[in-house]
Design a protein around this nucleic acid. Structure first.
Length: 458
DNA sequence: GATGATGATTACCC
DNA sequence: GGGTAATCATCATC
């Protein structure tokens, strides 16, 4: 009843005068100047207010009937207007306090993070970019690609949950807003509810739902952070490279011992072959160079092993090339092939044997000696059918020339092996490698045909 | 569990 | 930016 008294006071002393003409009604005189007529109207208003205040205590039918009666009451518009104004005044102060809020920095941070992590915003690019970034931090390799996809899958899951929840919240917010608006509009027929107030109420609802959304964003961010940290923590959890990968890297290293600095292209190619990343190749060569330099004696055995291995590969490749040549040559169907150069006649078996013996005895005969890397690559090219002699350096035209070139490369490599077998090849007195141009590319002896590249070191 | 091997990281240099 | 050297952390072997 306090409220009623307050409203009565307001109606009597403050605002009623300003709204005394409503809907063509008679003007009630200002408070304090009313006479007996004023007393009557005051009584009338009090009566109406009493009816409004007690309407909720009545049964539905009674209330409906009373509501209709009140709606039709001649004083209703004036009273409604006054009540609206009172509410507006109090509402304005509330609104003034609530509006003009600066954008919440925490919300901005959350939004930015979700965008950066690829949870919000466009799906494909950022999500995979974030996944790739995390995967890059973790490292490459077959297992890591699994982890990569695992990370991506989990991120996608988080993204889906986030969007589903967000959608739910938005839907609930819209539904609730519509419901409240309808309710208020309906109520506004009997209660002093202005459109501004409805608007304000909608704002309040939106703010409430925004805070819920913020909680959702916060939870999502936490989930992403946990996922991310889990992957980043796995950074140091290394796995040894596969045996095959290590062999490929070692073969390249020892065949380029004079200048074990693979170019970017070479690194990429090695990475592709080994199923690791370029940075892992760089790491590997960095570690290898240092460890080799630190303990040449220890690595000598390994160097010999790889040198011998590569030499055998080379011999096999040459033999294969010779046989291939025999098979393809119309002039030399079954026997040894005839070279254009008189001083280069060799039976296939003989060539193989002499090559092998040369390789391990260190006798390279009168052949020129390209560097080990050249041989390293030539062998692969001979293993396959698509030998590209021009890329190796000479203008290889005839079949015989091709073979001669290959053999000379092989023998040249044996010289390279001699260096590897008997001395720390390529290291200068300061413990560093001799200056040499960076090789432009790489292939390993295990590689198939069609990947011959030049190596201009030495 | 001790130990060596090895991939990754970091600080520094050029 | 790429290389070295030192170091860390983990793996693999005994």
């Amino acid at each position: 009843m306090e409220d009623q008294a307050r409203i009565m006071q307001s109606l009597g002393g403050v605002t009623l005068a300003a709204h005394s003409v409503q809907g063509g009604m008679a003007l009630p005189p200002p408070h304090g100047h009313e006479g007996t007529d004023g007393d009557g109207r005051k009584q009338d208003i009090g009566d109406i207010l009493h009816q409004i205040m007690t309407i909720t205590d009545q049964s539905l039918d009674e209330a409906q009937a009373k509501k209709h009666g009140l709606n039709c009451h001649r004083m209703k518009p004036a009273l409604f207007s006054v009540l609206c104004e009172i509410k507006e005044k109090t509402g304005l102060s509330i609104r003034g306090a609530q509006e003009d809020d600066p954008p919440d920095p925490q919300l901005m941070r959350l939004d930015n993070m979700l965008l950066a992590e690829g949870v919000s915003g466009p799906e494909k690019g950022s999500a995979s970019a974030a996944a790739a970034a995390a995967a890059a931090a973790v490292g490459g390799g077959a297992d890591n690609s699994i982890e990569h996809s695992d990370y991506r899958a989990k991120l996608t899951q988080i993204r889906q949950i986030y969007h589903t929840e967000l959608e739910k919240y938005e839907q609930a917010c819209n539904e609730f807003t519509t419901h409240v608006m309808n309710l208020l509009r309906e109520q506004s027929r009997t209660r002093p509810i202005s459109p501004k107030e409805i608007e304000r109420m909608v704002g309040i609802i939106h703010r409430k739902f925004s805070s819920i959304q913020m909680q959702l964003k916060q939870s999502t961010c936490e989930a992403v952070m946990i996922l991310r940290s889990r992957f980043l923590d796995a950074r140091r959890k290394r796995r040894n490279f596969s045996k095959q990968a290590t062999e490929i890297l070692n073969e390249y290293f020892y065949s380029h011992l004079s200048n074990p600095y693979p170019s970017e292209e070479a690194k990429e190619e090695l990475a592709k072959k080994c199923g690791i990343t370029v940075s892992q190749v760089s790491n590997w060569f960095g570690n290898k160079r240092i460890r080799y330099k630190k303990n040449i004696g220890k690595f000598q055995e390994e160097a010999n092993l790889y040198a011998a291995k590569t030499a055998v590969n080379a011999a096999h490749a040459v033999a294969a090339a010779v046989q291939n040549s025999q098979a393809n040559s119309p002039t030399t169907p079954n026997s040894g092939f005839q070279m254009k150069d008189e001083d280069f006649q060799m039976d296939a078996t003989e060539s193989k044997n002499s090559l092998l013996s040369n390789m391990f005895s260190g006798s390279s005969g009168s052949f020129n000696l390209p560097n080990a890397g050249d041989m390293f690559m030539s062998m692969q090219s001979l293993n396959g059918a698509s030998y590209q002699g021009a890329q190796v350096g000479g203008s290889v035209q005839s079949q015989g020339d091709t073979i001669r070139h290959a053999i000379s490369q092989a023998v040249g490599y044996s010289d390279g092996l001699r260096g590897h077998l008997y001395s720390p090849h390529g290291l200068n007195v300061n413990g560093g490698w001799h200056d040499a141009p960076t090789p432009s590319s790489v292939t390993s002896p295990t590689e198939g045909a069609g990947s011959v590249h030049s190596d201009t070191s030495n």
